[in-house]
Amino acid sequence: MELIFWWMPLAAAAVAGGGVWLYLAWRRRSRARLQRDGVPVAHSERLTELPEYQRVLRRYRALLAGVLTIVVVASGVGVLLASRVSSVEVVQPQSYKRDIMLCLDVSGSMTDVDAKIVDTFASLAKNLHGERVGLTVFDSSAVQVFPLTDDYDYVKTELTTYRDSFRSQGESGLRYWTGTDLGEGASLIGDGLSSCVLGFDGDSSSKRPKSIVLATDNYVNGSPIFTLKQAGDLATKHDVRVYAIDPVDYSADGTPDTVATQLKDVVDKTGGGFYGLSSTDTVPAIVQKIDDQEAGLFTGARRLVVSDHPGPLVVAGLLLLMASFGLLWRVRL
C-alpha cells in the first residue's frame, strides 16, 4: 500500500494546523461576539445548579467529543482518499494474442490424428481470449476451412463438425476431403504448408505471434510446387513457427525414419518443434506442450501496475460523514 500523492497528508496537516489557529483566534473573539449578538441572561445558576442540568451537560460534552472524533477520523479518511491509496505491482502479462493455424493433412492415413487435434482445439476454444484460430486442410490441394477468427463459437462448431467427419471417415455429415483432391498426387506437404503460411493475414509488420500446428506423416506422393524445405523457408520469412505432429512410424530399432527426420529439421528451422506421436504422448498433451513453448516465447514486457483502492475508504468516509451529520443535528451546532 502506497500513497500516490504522498504530500497530501502533509498539506492536510498544514491546513488542519491553520484551521486550529483560526479557531483559536475566533475563540478569542467569541467572547466579544457573544456580548454583541447573544441574549444576556442573569442568574443562570437557577439552571446550572440543577442535577439534571449537569447530567444533560455531561451528555452534551460526550456527544461533542463523539462529533469531534468522527469528524477527525472522517477527515483522515478523506485525506487518505485524496492521497490516493494504491498498490504497486510488477506484472508480466502473457501474450494471448496469438494466431494459430491448424494445418491438417487429410490423406487417409492421418484422419485419426486429425480427429484428435480438432477435438483438442474444439475443447480449448472455450478458454481462448484474444487468440485467433484458423483451419486449413490439404491433401493434393489446400482448402481453407475457415480463416483466422476469434469467433470461438463458430470455431468450435466447425471443429466439431470436422472431428465427426474425420471419425466417421466422411461417412456421416460433411465430407472432409472436399476440394483437397484437385491437384496431382496426394499429401503434397510443401504446398499445404505454404498455403497455411499464406493464410495469415497482415504483412510482416504484424506483431501477433504466428504459429502453425501441422499434422502430417510427411509421406509425399507426387510433385509439389513447393518442396517441404521451401515451404519451411517461406514460414521463416513470414515469422511463422511450425509445430509438427507426426504419427511417427518408428522402425524396429526405435529411431524415427528419414522422412520424419526431414520434417523435424524443417520445423526446427522455423523455430517451432517436432512432436512424434507415440503411445505415451497423447494429442492433448502435445498441444499443451506447444502452448507452453509459445507462452515461454511471448510474454509481454514487465509492467508496473499501480491500482487505486478507494472502495473501502469511500464507504467508510460516507458512513462517517452521515454519522457526523446525524450527531451534529443532534447537538444542534
Binding site: L34, G38, L47, Y60, V331
Partner: peptide, 26 residues
C-alpha cells in the same frame, strides 16, 4: 443569538436548553 450568562460570559448550549425534561425541572 446564543444565550449567555452575564456573570461569567459563558454561553448556555442550545442542546442543553432544548432538553424537555430539563425544561420542566427548571
Amino acid at each position: 443569538g446564543p444565550v449567555y450568562d452575564v456573570q461569567e460570559v459563558a454561553a448556555l448550549p442550545a442542546y442543553v436548553r432544548s432538553n424537555r425534561a430539563l425544561r420542566g425541572l427548571f
